[in-house]
Design a protein around this nucleic acid. Sequence first.
DNA 1: ACGTCAAAAAAGATGCATCAAGTATCTTAT
DNA 2: ATAAGATACTTGATGCATCTTTTTTGACGT
Lengths: 226, 226
Amino acid sequence: MAEFTTLEHENLNSVVYGALCDALMQGRFQPGDRLKIRDLAEQFGTSVTPIRDAILRLANDEAIAFRSPRDIRIAGLSENRYREIRAIRVRLEGLAAETAAQVATSADIQAMEQILLENEAAIKDGDRLKGTQLNQAFHFMLPRIAGLPVLTTILRRLWLQMGPHISDAYLAGGRAMIDHHYPVVEALKRHDPTAASMAIVDDILLGGKPILDRIGGGSPDAQPSV
Amino acid sequence: MAEFTTLEHENLNSVVYGALCDALMQGRFQPGDRLKIRDLAEQFGTSVTPIRDAILRLANDEAIAFRSPRDIRIAGLSENRYREIRAIRVRLEGLAAETAAQVATSADIQAMEQILLENEAAIKDGDRLKGTQLNQAFHFMLPRIAGLPVLTTILRRLWLQMGPHISDAYLAGGRAMIDHHYPVVEALKRHDPTAASMAIVDDILLGGKPILDRIGGGSPDAQPSV
DNA sequence: ACGTCAAAAAAGATGCATCAAGTATCTTAT
DNA sequence: ATAAGATACTTGATGCATCTTTTTTGACGT
């Protein structure tokens, strides 16, 4: 029974949701920023209904929070919560990398190398926005190659929560973000699941260090769960 | 700045969402069942707005799908998708079990044993609904003990998708579901993270076998990702 | 200047009317 | 009797009015 192909009916609410997701992932919102339904409705040129729909979905994603009944804001991110998200990403992106290493085609690998190339250019140009986008594109390539749509959705949601918190810390890390990407591609080339997993874990933990430093006090990773 | 306590403003939409979530988790919907906003509005005694809000959230959770522009139905679950969900659960509940084993108090363990006790009784009574609920309660206890709220949310969403598909298969497995729970508690008692993780993985893979048999053809687990 | 409090403005929640598009039913001609 | 076309109905999407509560603002007193 069943197996519905999720054909996206481009509702207005989906359009608004997509636009807000992009904005969140690109760091165009700051934590604590307030969202007003009527203001957004005016910006998007719609009534308040599709905006409310999109806001509700984002709240369901825990990307935005209702601080009080009439106060919608970009959600905060405590150090503990960020550590939890990181631990989850380690497990899930590890799974994605393992699976991807087993099934990656040469076209897949070429696509990843293309992203790395463009990412280098973005870093050289100091294009913060493009760098952020390409970093995300790299990470989302793994579950896509692995053919894991559920995992992709989960990661997208986690990134929605991280988005407003990584923008400032991104450039602070310099090349730290992209340096760890090369071993991932190498492992995929060799079809080595274990190496691919270890490489992406390194990227999450080491490359993500500046983010943690910004959110928390930058204390050593004493947490057992990694 | 930041760190908003997610205080649930008991909106009507939250009430409806919670009720529908419960219904889904308890297997009170069948895959392909159609949902009608106006009908639900009448059942809940509200206008259509809070119902739409709740439906939209469930669609965002991918628990329900819009088959066509005016046709809302309980989502289907392909064998591949179920396998993916299972692989994700293995990783995430494994993480939860490891962490829980490190921090579990005697009160935590007592609570888990209490669930097992009630679950035994439910099986003896042939109370399918209660058995399903207690099985879920057991699984959600681990991330709760571990103090991993993000992980809890992810698992809840996965269960929302599985709910309509496990009800029938539950009793078919007989005691298979609860048998694998005891080693988990034993591992928690010994504060043995590895054993706890392995035990819960066993439960997911072996205890969940009848579900896979029902959804797919019950073919051997040839998939690499487990 | 600063804090307090009340009036005014704002804002999300809810309900409802209407729209467009699909579905079912009925009519009518063959 | 059947099938094609027309009509009526269903249904989610969208827009909007209103309600209640919150938030803001500004006057006032200290």
